[in-house]
Every structure is written in structure tokens, then in C-alpha cells.
Design a protein around this nucleic acid. Structure first.
Lengths: 329, 329
DNA sequence: TTGTATGCGTTATCAC
DNA sequence: GTGATAACGCATACAA
């Protein structure tokens, strides 16, 4: 064999392939990218040269630098164990990753450590489920990274994807009012945009709703608060929760104390997530999770392309289940 | 002001900063990376020049190319909604992301689409929960990307992190045998490495265990299989499941049919995940999730450094809860 | 359809 | 402690 001596330990580059195929570097590049037409013959030569050299395709790192993109979108969710414990997070993220994957982009999980500022991200989605942390925000804005905020606070420069928390909460409250309830209690989430909106919606109908407490969307935490509340005498006939997990906790704890749902106590949730371990269909406000995820990912894609993107507020729908009933007289 | 005319619309580079600070490019680089000593005075000049130019630090894309690393580790989990529906996935991934984050690395979620082969990943973790798909495997191997397989099949060249499924399953089976059980049924996972091992452990003690069925670790699916099984008369006194979610389903369905657990039927699980919505502590095999995650991430880090890494098999522990009892005579 | 020539923005190697 | 210079591997504008 002729030709220059091969360095066996170096991974081949596109230049090596081009040389072996007897074409120019740019032609070899086009043979892989398909960004411009290449004759079938030369493409064949390039690909077979690549094959025999063990060339596995253009180095993503080099392409990224050249194109100024990493192909990776970050999603800030906070600590994974808490972020995903909330069943409402999953279907939404699933849709996000699906849309991105279809475009060949990857989804990178970010805690909140601001460490990830050193990673090359084409855009960042904030889906922090109420934990309103800024951490890396300033840095990302300074670097011009497009930001999409899901149900979050109004950060300047970000695109917002939201649902109509307030209307949903008002609808479920109206539903209870129609059933004759007048004295209701509420279990709220931690201080956050969704919490504020949902509570505001509730108080449009029940301005004097008693707050049982405030906790994350966690069964155990919610059950403890409910237990403390129900251990004192109360004239409340309904509990409005800000998540289905909380509502399930109220149902479980109420039953544990001998109450019947909904005869003795009506319970409403929010989200519309499956609770197959509960033998009772919750009355709740159903979010369009998939649509929310798609809207989020699509917004990120558009912003990466430099396009202007409108904020989105998606509608929710009241689902009347078996956990709410007419108030007993 | 003197000097060349500034292009206002171009984001500043390290060269711009160096020029503005009156130092060389390499010195400016060192001022940011700290890879070599730089006098405090010049570092100050560099940083203040960066500040006034709005330079936000070295471009990650360029650094990645130069260093041959992306700082991103992929984790193949399949479709998110199924991957995370299994509560066993969370604490493990949490530990993985924690370890990586401490090293400044990011964690990228991969479906199984092989699309992600075009992304620059420093290593890939396969945590596919029994879905034994190869998809991108060949490609990754060809590109020399280090692979870490968690509870997976024996892929050549990969590092393996596993738990002692077989011993755990045998221990829970022995526990039941000690309680007098002789006729047991089992609910198994989909065909996979964990399933095979766990079932083998069970059959060391109960070679003739009846298989109720095979399903993913999903409450509804498991409940349906159990319902079908219990609708026929049976002399089985215990059901051994391969996940806690399955076990919870068996408990729920057994009770729905008027059986008492564990008096009429003993039920055992696997994993040791919290099931706060079940008012019964499951007898189960507890996995060291956090340790598994740390071992996985650590293995990935070492392999990225080019070091050899030993496979890991972590021990499990039997936890006797209230879902198993002495067989009634 | 193909080839030539730049430059993406760094970091690392060397000399000073 | 600092500076000049050479890659890193590729995609594109432009010329042929």
C-alpha cells in the first residue's frame, strides 16, 4: 500500500476520510451532512473510505463549535427526587423530550446549582414546580441563552408557558358552592406562582377559606397537616387542595378518622393525574400536560432560532369525580 | 479612545478581553481557568476588562472542542413517562445526578431513539429498567464512548453496576418458607436481567412457583393480572412480586376480594420504595438506591478519565414488614 | 457538482 | 509570570 504512514492510535477525522477517498474536505463534509448535493458516486467513495477507516461521523464537538450550537436544552427541575415525585411533572416532561428528540436535540437535567452554567446549552426551560430560585438565571441571561419559564415567576426576557390556574381553581370552587358548601378549607402548595393563582381563584368564591397548611405535593406531608387539622373540631364541609396528591392525602386521612368522602367531607384536587391506588375518582382540575410540554419545547425551539415567541396560557377543565358531593344538611 | 473600531453586535471573545486588558490571549485564558499562576494585578485587569466588555466567560463550545469533552453524560432510560413511573428509578438517578453535578458534569436524558448519537456525550449510562434495547449501542461503542450498564445485559466493553437480585429474591423466598408457605405464586417483570435473576432466586426455594403473569411495574397492570388470578380458586398462600408496586397491587386487589393480608394471603415485594398510600408496610427486598447511583456515576467518571473500572454488585437486605405472616393452617 | 480557503473561540505547548 | 503560535475538527462562503 502506498500513501502516508497511518498513525494507528489517532481517531480518524474528516480530513483523513477525504484524503482516503480522494476528494476535498468540503466534499466529504457534504457527503455526510447532505447540506448540498453530492454525486452518488463520490458519496459512495466517501462513505466506503469512512467505513474502512473506522470513521464514525463528524465529531459533534467540532460541529457544535462551528455551528455555535450544542444541540442540548437544559431543564431546571431542582433535585430530581422531589421534582419527579410529583406525578404532574412526568407527562409534561415526556412531551418536552419527545418534541426535542424529534428535532435531534437533547434534554439535560439541571439541578439548581448554577454549576451547569459552564455547560453549552442552547436554551433553558425552567420547570421548578414552585421553587422560585434564580441561581443561574442572571448568568444565562447575560450569556443570551433563551429562557422558557413554565408556570413560573415573571422573569424579564423569558418566554412564559402557563395554564389558567385561577380559572380552574375558581371553577372547582364554584362547583362546590353549587353543591351547597359554604365553609371550606384549603391545603396550599409552597409560595409560588401556581399557588398564588390557584388560591386567588379559590378565594374568588370562598374569600374566607381556612388554610389548613402549606406543603409540597407529597402524600405524607399533606396527610400530616390534614391529621392536625381534623383532630380539632371543625365545621368545614369541603377541602380544596392544590394538587391531586394532596387531595388523596386528605381522602386517606379523613377515612382513617372514620369520615366518609364525600358524604361527610368533599375533597377536590388539582392536576388530573392518575391515582390508581385510590379507589375513588377525584374531582379535580385537569391540566393539558402534553400540550403544555409541547408548547414549552416548541417555544424553546423557536427562541433558539431567534424567532419571537408569544407567551402561552393553556385552558384547564373541571373534572367532577366521586370525591365531591352535595353538602349534608 | 484608540484602538480598532469595535463591532458592537458581536459577542466578545477572549481575544477581545485580552486586547482590552493589554495582555496576551494565553494570559487571559489563564486568568479565567486558573490552570497556571497569574499575578493578581493582571488577573484583576483581565476580569475588569471582561466586565466592561460584557464577556461572560470562555465559550463552552470552544473549550469543549479544544479539550475533547462535552461535560455531558447521557442516561438511557427509555420513554420518560414509563421510566419514571417506576419509583425505583428516582432515588438512583438522583444520586447519579448529584455525583455528576459535583464534578461539573451534566446529565442528559436519552430516550432510545439513537438520535442522540449525534450529541457529544462523554459517557452513557444505560438504565433501561429491563427494556433491553440496543439501539444506539453499536454506534456508541464505535465512537469509543464509555458505557455503564445498570442492571442490564452483558454488553461487551461496558462497565456493569448491579445488585444481588438473586440472593435478595432467595432470601424473601426463604422467609416465606420459614413461615410455612409451600404453595406460592409470582408476579414477574418483563423479560430482562433483573427479572431473570429475581425469578431464579425465587425458584431456588420454590421451584414450582406459579407465574401469575408478567407486566411492567405498574399498579393498574399488576392489579389486572392479580384480579384474573384470584378470580379462579387457588391454594396459593403467598404471592412473591418482583417490585413493590406490583406487591401493592396484589394487596389492593386481594383486599378488594375480601381477603386479609397477611392472614389469608402473604405478599412480598422487591425494591424498598415508599408506598405511603398503602396502610401496610410491605415485606420486601431493599435496594441501596443511593449507593447504586453513586457507584454508577463514579464508574462513568473513571471511565471518562480512561481508567479501568471493576464491575460492581451491591448487596440487598430483606425487610420484613406486615404483609407476610405465618401460613394459616 | 467539486475544490479552496477561512474561521468558530478556546486551551496547551513551548519559549521567553 | 507572560507571550507567540499551533492545533481541536469541522462547516460554510466563494470560486471554479
Amino acid at each position: 500500500m502506498s500513501g502516508p504512514i497511518r498513525q494507528p492510535s489517532r481517531t480518524p477525522t474528516l480530513a483523513d476520510v477525504a484524503a482516503a477517498a480522494g476528494v476535498s474536505l468540503s466534499t466529504a463534509s457534504l457527503a455526510f451532512s447532505g447540506n448540498k448535493p453530492v454525486s452518488e458516486a463520490t458519496r459512495g467513495r466517501v462513505l466506503s473510505a469512512a467505513g474502512s477507516l473506522g470513521y464514525t461521523g463528524p465529531n459533534p464537538l467540532a460541529r457544535n463549535l462551528r455551528q455555535g450550537r450544542s444541540g442540548v436544552v437544559g431543564i431546571a427541575v431542582g433535585p430530581l427526587s422531589t421534582a419527579f415525585r410529583d406525578p404532574a411533572a412526568l407527562p409534561m416532561m415526556d412531551a418536552v423530550s419527545q418534541v426535542l428528540e424529534d428535532e435531534g436535540l437533547g434534554l439535560l437535567l439541571m439541578g439548581d446549582s448554577a454549576e451547569h452554567a459552564r455547560l453549552p446549552l442552547d436554551a433553558v426551560i425552567y420547570q421548578i414546580c414552585g421553587q422560585e430560585t434564580w441561581a443561574a438565571y442572571d448568568d444565562l441571561v447575560a450569556r443570551g441563552v433563551p429562557l422558557v419559564v413554565v408556570e413560573g415567576p415573571a422573569w424579564p426576557g423569558a418566554t412564559f408557558i402557563d395554564i389558567d390556574h385561577r380559572r380552574g381553581a375558581a371553577e372547582v370552587a364554584t362547583h362546590l358552592h353549587d353543591l351547597g358548601h359554604r365553609r371550606v378549607a384549603t391545603l396550599t402548595l409552597q409560595e409560588s406562582h401556581p399557588q398564588r393563582e390557584r388560591e386567588a381563584g379559590l378565594r374568588e368564591v370562598f374569600p374566607d377559606a381556612v388554610r389548613i397548611g402549606r406543603c409540597v405535593s407529597d402524600l405524607t406531608a399533606a396527610q400530616e397537616l390534614t391529621s392536625a387539622f381534623l383532630s380539632e373540631p371543625t365545621d368545614v364541609t369541603a377541602v380544596v387542595c392544590q394538587s391531586d396528591v394532596q387531595a388523596a392525602a386528605v381522602v386517606i386521612e379523613a377515612r382513617r378518622r372514620g369520615l366518609t368522602v364525600p358524604d361527610d367531607l368533599s375533597v377536590a384536587g388539582f392536576d388530573g393525574v392518575p391515582t390508581p391506588w385510590l379507589d375513588l375518582e377525584l374531582t379535580t382540575v385537569v391540566q393539558p400536560f402534553a400540550e403544555k410540554g409541547r408548547a414549552t419545547a416548541t417555544a424553546a425551539l423557536h427562541r433558539i432560532e431567534g424567532e419571537a415567541v408569544d407567551d402561552v396560557v393553556l385552558p384547564v377543565t373541571l373534572h367532577v369525580g366521586a370525591s365531591t358531593g352535595r353538602v349534608s344538611t
